[in-house]
Structures are given as structure tokens and as C-alpha cells.
Nucleic acid binder design. Structure first.
Lengths: 153, 153
DNA sequence: CTTAATGCAAACCGTTTGCATAGAT
DNA sequence: ATCTATGCAAACGGTTTGCATTAAG
């Protein structure tokens, strides 16, 4: 809801027709605290805002957005595809297997090494995906608390 | 077909009942030239060998194999899960987007860097997946040939 | 006015599950 | 004899598509 005008200008800049489903989806992606959302996440969020939008439309809007590089998609081990605003700078991801939170990171040494690997195997690199899975600090703390509860009982 | 006895001993070593579907699947995985196969790939290959096996069984066998660490599974961008024999040593993958060939590589500097990233973000790392996508040498050559054909016509 | 975008329901595709039967130990 | 593995078909979950309708330019 925050940036209706911003979304509008993003759409125009991308040369897309401005429709209310597109504005809505863009808004959710741009303003949701968790920056990585599945189509269904977006759908649910929009149902609450009384926006009358079909799930199929969300998929169509998202794939359209990908074509014009407004958003990009990621496949974590969950199976469902998640979408994030395209911020221009490349990054990789850390995913907490417990709470699902997603952090972004960039390590230029890793990037460089990947180029070397590709060169060595004579691949023309077009893309790569690196995801680290684990337990975030917060969940680890939770876990410790639970464990100590159990061992005390 | 090559290693029926080897497959048999692998199953026994893993403490699994020896059944013909299990032998068949293990054999295909162990002897196929392309070491990374989807459930359907295995299914098709076995249909040709006149083995009467159901696709559901293949999925069940594969997930059983994963539990006992005989095979591991990978999700590339294609959407379908592929399976490979577990060879013990960790490695990452290079995938050709044209012909689908999969190469394996290991770069200990990248591995080390990942640990550092996890530490920095205070994640307890449990797993990671790194896949490089591109065009392999062979396909690049093909491509050049086709391009020059087009520009000559 | 023309052409693209939407909603809905049905189709899809890879994978999983229920159930009755076959088979390994 | 027991208990697990199998085959089949039906169910599933995420995503895509066909078609009649609505709306943007």
C-alpha cells in the first residue's frame, strides 16, 4: 500500500500496461517485510487487502515481470518458486530451514572462483545458483531453549 | 546390467531387502553413462530392458536409497529431481542448458568461503547447493556451426 | 476501437499415497 | 508365517492454459 505511485512509475518505465493486478503484485513484493514470496503468499496477502485477483493472474503477472527484469525467481529446496524484486546487483542466498527467513549475501571471491571453474571445464557460464541452508541465529536460540527444557524435565 | 552382483552386495550392506526393482534401479544408476537421472529417465530405461516396474516403485526405491545414503538427489532449474550415486565426496555441479550434461566439480576455496559467510550471518550451516549453468564446449561448437550456416544462407 | 490482461475452471506434470497382492526373509 | 515391497490408479500441489469477458491505450 505504501508506494502506489512508485509501482506505477516502475510499470510505465518497463513499458507495461498499468492494471490493478499488476500494481497490487508489485506493491506486495516491494513492501512485504519478507522480501521473498511465493505466488500463493502474494495471493493470500492480496485476498486480505480485498483485492479481487486470481491466482492464475498472479502467475501471469510474475512471469511478465520477469521478462522485463522487474522481478527474479528462485527455487529453494521447498519446491515452490519464490520471487523477489530485482535490485540490479547479483547476490546469493542463505535460507533458514526452520523459519524460512532468507538472507542475501555476495562474496566476490566465490564469484571469481566460479568463473575459474567454468573456464576450466570449458563452459560458457550463463547463470548460477548458490544457496546455503541452515538454522538462523534466532531459531538456534529457540532450539537451545527447547532442548534445555526437555533435558530439565 | 553390468554389475548385478555389485548391486546385490550394496543392497545387503545397506541392510535393505533385495528385490528386483531395487536391483534394477541401482544398476541403471550405477551404469548409465549420464550419471544424473530423473525417476522418469530410469523408468524409461527399465521399460526397454523389459523389466516390469512401476513409476511409483521407482520413486519409493529412490527415496529409500536416499535414506540409507546410497543415492542423493538434486534439483536443477528444470524442475524435475535427478538422482546420482552417492560417492562419498562432496561436489557441486555444472549443467549444460542445451544438452543437459552434468559435470561435477569441487573447489575447496569456495567451500571455505561458504563457511565464512555462514559464520558472518550467524547461520548454522547444514547444507548448500551450488550449480553453474551454461553451455558446454560441445554445444558451443554446435552453436557456432549453426550460426555460420544461417549467416551463409 | 483494438489488442492485451483478467478470472475462472479445467488441464498439466512431477510426485505421493491407499489399497489389495506378491514376494523376501 | 510375517511383514515389507510392489503395481495400479487415484490424489496431490504447484503451475499453466483455453476461453469468454473486461479494461487499457
Amino acid at each position: 500500500m505504501i508506494n502506489k505511485t512508485r509501482s506505477l512509475s516502475l510499470l510505465k518505465k518497463a513499458g507495461l500496461k498499468v492494471t490493478s493486478p499488476r500494481l497490487s503484485v508489485l506493491n506486495v513484493l516491494a513492501s512485504s517485510k519478507k522480501g521473498h514470496l511465493s505466488a500463493e503468499d502474494i495471493y493470500k496477502e492480496l485476498l486480505e487487502s480485498a483485492s479481487d485477483i486470481g491466482l492464475a493472474t498472479i502467475y501471469r503477472v510474475l512471469s511478465h515481470f520477469q521478462k522485463v527484469k522487474l522481478v527474479s525467481s528462485l527455487n529453494f529446496s521447498s519446491g515452490r518458486t519464490v520471487y523477489e524484486m530485482e535490485k540490479g546487483e547479483h547476490h546469493d542466498h542463505l535460507v533458514c530451514l526452520q523459519c524460512g527467513i532468507v538472507e542475501e549475501f555476495m562474496d566476490s571471491e566465490i564469484e571469481q572462483r566460479q568463473l575459474n571453474v567454468a573456464k576450466k571445464y570449458q563452459f560458457t557460464l550463463t547463470d548460477h545458483s548458490l544457496t546455503l541452508y541452515g538454522i538462523c541465529k534466532k531459531c538456534a536460540k529457540e532450539h537451545t531453549r527447547i532442548n534445555s527444557k526437555i533435558s530439565n524435565s
